Amino acid sequence: MKKGYIHVYTGNGKGKTTASLGISLRAVCAGKKVFFGQFAKGMDYSELNAVKYLPNFKICQFGRDVFISDMPCNEDIVLAKDGLEISSEALSSGKYDMVVLDEINIAIYYKLFKVEEVLQILDNRCPKVEVILTGRYANKEIIDKADLVTEMKEIKHYYKKNVPARIGIEF
């Protein structure tokens, strides 16, 4: 690719991470290298096993093993800032064709770092890198920067019928 574009997958509906995993699979199957960074996530998700099956796919988590439910703690901030530094390197190194920053919009929303820091690493990326930014509450500046924005809208969800998260579907 000569020029990489910036995608944003946001909204309150299910499927943002799933969509970013799908485009990552497509990229790897086309012989491309993908870096997949998960912000505010440290839980044992099934996608962590992808590295066993997919050459050229690297995944890193930059969060604790719990969701941020109210106010982030200092550990959340430290992990996110470390993740932003690692992601900046992945974006600028030229080693990857695609970089996914999963839940980065949540990290901005919870003020784990500033939107300006994210915009800066996007500006400093290797121009051929395709970038996917996911998470609810996408900041207006992120949306303005993006070339493609998709909003996942919840119409109906089985969580409301107390269906628990299932391995291989939700995690």
Score class of each variant (00 low, 15 high):
residue 108 I to P: 00
residue 100 V to C: 08
residue 92 S to K: 15
residue 133 L to E: 00
residue 77 I to A: 03
residue 126 C to K: 11
residue 92 S to P: 10
residue 133 L to G: 00
residue 53 Y to T: 09
residue 74 N to K: 13
residue 67 F to Y: 15
residue 101 L to Q: 00
residue 138 A to Y: 07
residue 57 F to S: 10
residue 86 I to N: 09
residue 111 K to A: 04
residue 98 M to Y: 15
residue 78 V to K: 14
residue 114 K to I: 08
residue 49 N to Y: 12
residue 61 Q to A: 05
residue 103 E to G: 11
residue 125 R to E: 02
residue 99 V to A: 07
residue 58 K to H: 04
residue 135 G to A: 05
residue 122 L to H: 03
residue 110 Y to M: 12
residue 104 I to T: 11
residue 115 V to R: 09
residue 104 I to Y: 07
residue 89 E to M: 10
residue 119 L to C: 00
residue 66 V to W: 11
residue 137 Y to T: 03
residue 94 G to T: 11
residue 74 N to L: 09
residue 138 A to G: 06
residue 123 D to A: 13
residue 127 P to F: 08
residue 138 A to S: 02
residue 99 V to H: 07
residue 140 K to C: 03
residue 72 P to F: 09
residue 81 K to M: 07
residue 112 L to A: 10
residue 79 L to R: 14
residue 115 V to F: 06
residue 87 S to D: 04
residue 83 G to K: 01
residue 104 I to D: 03
residue 100 V to F: 04
residue 59 I to W: 00
residue 108 I to W: 01
residue 111 K to R: 12
residue 137 Y to D: 11
residue 97 D to A: 02
residue 73 C to G: 12
residue 101 L to S: 00
residue 94 G to W: 15
residue 78 V to Q: 08
residue 121 I to R: 06
residue 123 D to V: 07
residue 53 Y to S: 10
residue 52 K to P: 02
residue 91 L to M: 09
residue 106 I to Y: 07
residue 74 N to Q: 14
residue 65 D to N: 14
residue 78 V to S: 05
residue 49 N to E: 12
residue 97 D to T: 07
residue 129 V to Y: 01
residue 104 I to M: 08
residue 105 N to P: 02
residue 86 I to G: 04
residue 129 V to C: 03
residue 91 L to K: 11
residue 127 P to K: 15
residue 61 Q to L: 05
residue 78 V to P: 01
residue 107 A to I: 02
residue 74 N to D: 12
residue 98 M to Q: 07
residue 141 E to G: 05
residue 119 L to Q: 10
residue 95 K to I: 12
residue 63 G to H: 12
residue 131 V to R: 08
residue 69 S to N: 14
residue 71 M to Q: 14
residue 130 E to Q: 02
residue 89 E to Y: 15
residue 93 S to T: 13
residue 57 F to G: 08
residue 94 G to E: 10
residue 111 K to S: 14
residue 56 N to C: 07
residue 137 Y to R: 13
residue 140 K to H: 13
residue 122 L to V: 12
residue 129 V to F: 02
residue 83 G to C: 01
residue 107 A to P: 00
residue 125 R to W: 09
residue 130 E to T: 13
residue 65 D to L: 03
residue 78 V to M: 01
residue 139 N to H: 15
residue 116 E to H: 00
residue 89 E to L: 13
residue 115 V to Q: 00
residue 95 K to C: 03
residue 72 P to E: 10
residue 141 E to K: 15
residue 79 L to S: 04
residue 76 D to H: 01
residue 128 K to D: 06
residue 107 A to T: 01
residue 108 I to Q: 04
residue 86 I to H: 10
residue 106 I to C: 10
residue 94 G to D: 10
residue 68 I to T: 07
residue 138 A to E: 06
residue 90 A to G: 00
residue 107 A to E: 00
residue 117 E to Y: 11
residue 112 L to G: 00
residue 73 C to N: 15
residue 72 P to N: 07
residue 133 L to Q: 00
residue 68 I to K: 03
residue 63 G to N: 11
